[in-house]
Nucleic acid binder design. Structure first.
Length: 580
DNA sequence: ACCCCAATAT
DNA sequence: TATATTGGGG
């Protein structure tokens, strides 16, 4: 580690003296940033050449705490050598170009943040947070290794305090940007219930840009990978079978993971606990995301990755030789994402493997999903017919076990939790089951009934009078306190606009007229092109920008105007006749 | 190999 | 109670 917790503790005037590597090929820009940083008492080494920067690191890996790297337009070949090489160094990408995929790629490659130029003083000032965050991450994993890690977490408290006060100082110095407001809340919470259970990283998420948790592996199965270097392989490890070589035993670890990957995804959280005797003690409230309001895409995570006893001292009492499968807790968040995935896929494509792929939940197995899906369907089956028979009976496809066909749609993410939304638009039932989640929030409301206003009710606002069916989209207010550069979602207008491009190639230009209000990034046409290609090649994946394909109805109704009047009748096409 | 479902185990 | 697992069938 470049900088340890101890270093930080003894670092009286942190973050003064933080050593920053600056890489910007534009010498003017570099000089400018450098001088700004130096005004803040950072120690800056500026490079205008990637190779030099890299060799500076390799010569002395410990010479920098954080890196700021400019992505120039010339770099659009997608080559991020620095990012890939300097994995241990929290790296902030900066750029004056607005390119979504570049941004995503950087994040995927482990960038701590992606900032748009020009860089405000405040953004620059806050770079130290990434250092803290990195350390927190490190500590978290250390704790994991310490099975229980209570002793350790105690010793962490001073650090926590230090950081909290630092955060407050930052706030006190008069920042008003809403990201800071969000952070202020975090800090307050940190102060209010300061139970030592929580790890440091709970309280101090890195700023702004959504993060891809690197290396947070939560699946047991011999997964002792280096925490810092497995970034991109998202190959949703479905290592259900016991992994071959090393018979691993993961010991009573409380694994709690939330991974944030992509803008269309929501923060999620899975809690997997060993289902052993001692499990109950740590249960309370653990399943609720600590920051459901964290809509800027930054997701806290505290990963206590399972570890292998082959690598760690068996200092834990009662090593359990029988490695039973940990029980997956279908937390509300997780379930929401599950439902979202199912709905994105549509009824027909919603099969375990794809759902799994869509959910991108580390540690989740196909079995988990299948099991949950099974239950989901069963619930649906029992609840749907009532309401549906009346409406759709005459159109029902006998082959389909009684489900009306629902057009594939990319959004909304959460509406299925919202009983009202379901009842009004999709005829997807709420999975009726009056059970309350440990949080006290009923996970399944009675069918078609808005059992609860979700805590995250701001996420979805559904207007009962609105018939969103056609597009399967809902009106989504812009997330509050949005401070990342990540586009979150687009509103209905945008979706329709863009979606129309999908079936009217001649209208591509229209895509540039995306309403400004909807997203703060405006992907260039090439971007859209790329996105479309991917969308086409993998139709079951969600649209990256929250776009959605046009409904079949739209296409069918559009065909005649394209000179296609004779429409062969596809297998399920009678489903669609309903609204035309 | 995957999916689905029901039954059963934990 | 909820989830995992198993087993039969497609």
């Amino acid at each position: 580690m470049i900088c340890s917790a101890e270093d930080l503790l003894g670092w009286g005037d942190f973050p003064k003296g933080l050593r920053v590597l600056l890489l910007d090929e534009d010498t003017i820009s570099a000089a400018e940033i450098k001088s700004k940083l130096e005004e803040m008492d950072y120690i800056v080494s500026a490079f205008c050449n990637e190779n030099e920067a890299l060799s500076a690191i390799s010569n002395n890996p410990d010479s920098f705490h954080v890196a700021i790297v400019e992505v120039s337009s010339g770099n659009s070949n997608g080559d991020f050598r620095f990012l890939e090489s300097a994995r241990d160094l929290p790296t902030i990408m900066i750029s004056s170009i607005h390119c979504l995929s570049t941004m995503m790629k950087c994040i995927a490659l482990g960038a701590a943040e992606f900032l748009q130029k020009p860089l405000s003083e405040e953004k620059l000032r806050n770079i130290w947070q990434h250092v803290v965050h990195k350390i927190s991450e490190f500590i978290s994993s250390e704790q994991a290794f310490n099975a229980g890690g209570n002793a350790l977490s105690k010793s962490l408290n001073p650090l926590k305090e230090t950081v909290v006060s630092m955060l407050q100082l930052q706030l006190d110095s008069g920042e008003t940007e809403n990201c800071n407001l969000a952070e202020a809340e975090n800090v307050q919470q940190a102060h209010e219930h300061d139970h030592e259970q929580s790890t440091v990283s709970d309280k101090f998420p890195a700023p702004s840009t959504p993060q891809l948790k690197q290396g947070g592996r939560l699946l047991d199965d011999g997964d002792c990978q280096d925490q810092t270097n497995c970034s991109l392989e998202k190959e949703s490890g479905e290592q259900e079978g016991e992994s071959k070589s090393v018979e691993t035993t993961c010991n009573n670890l409380h694994v709690e993971v939330a991974v944030k990957v992509d803008p269309s995804e929501r923060p999620e959280e899975a809690v997997i606990k060993e289902e052993d005797d001692s499990a109950d003690g740590s249960k309370t409230g653990a399943n609720i995301s600590p920051h459901p309001q964290n809509e800027d895409g930054v997701q806290d995570f505290s990963v206590e990755a399972g570890h292998c006893n082959t690598a760690s001292p068996p200092n834990l009492g009662g090593t359990r030789a029988s490695r039973k499968k940990r029980k997956l807790d279908w937390s509300l968040e997780l379930h929401k994402r599950f439902v979202q995935a199912v709905e994105q896929l549509g009824v027909h494509q919603a099969i375990p493997s794809r759902i799994l792929e869509l959910m991108k939940e580390e540690g989740l197995t196909r079995h988990n999903v299948a099991s949950h899906l099974q239950k989901y369907r069963r619930h649906r089956r029992h609840i749907l017919p009532k309401e549906d028979d009346q409406r759709w009976q005459h159109l029902r496809d006998p082959v389909q076990r009684g489900y009306p066909h629902i057009p594939v749609m990319a959004f909304p993410p959460y509406h299925s939790i919202h009983g009202l939304a379901i009842a009004t638009s999709q005829n997807y039932p709420v999975w009726g089951h009056p059970r309350a989640h440990p949080s006290g929030i009923p996970m399944w409301g009675p069918p078609g009934y808005p059992a609860w206003q979700p805590q995250e009710s701001w996420l979805w606002k559904t207007y009962p009078g609105m018939h969103a069916d056609t597009w399967g989209c809902h009106v989504m207010p812009p997330p509050q306190g949005l401070c990342s550069n990540f586009p979150q979602v687009s509103n209905a207008d945008t979706q329709i606009h863009v979606a129309s491009c999908f079936y009217r190639p001649d209208a591509i230009e229209d895509c540039s007229h995306i309403p400004k209000s909807s997203i703060n990034l405006h992907p260039a046409e090439e971007e859209i092109d790329k996105v479309m290609k991917e969308a086409i090649s993998k139709p079951w994946l969600p649209m990256p920008l929250g776009l959605k394909p046009p409904s079949t109805e739209s296409i069918l109704s559009e065909l005649p105007s394209q000179g296609i009047s004779n429409i062969p009748s596809p297998i399920n096409n009678h489903h669609h006749s309903r609204s035309c």
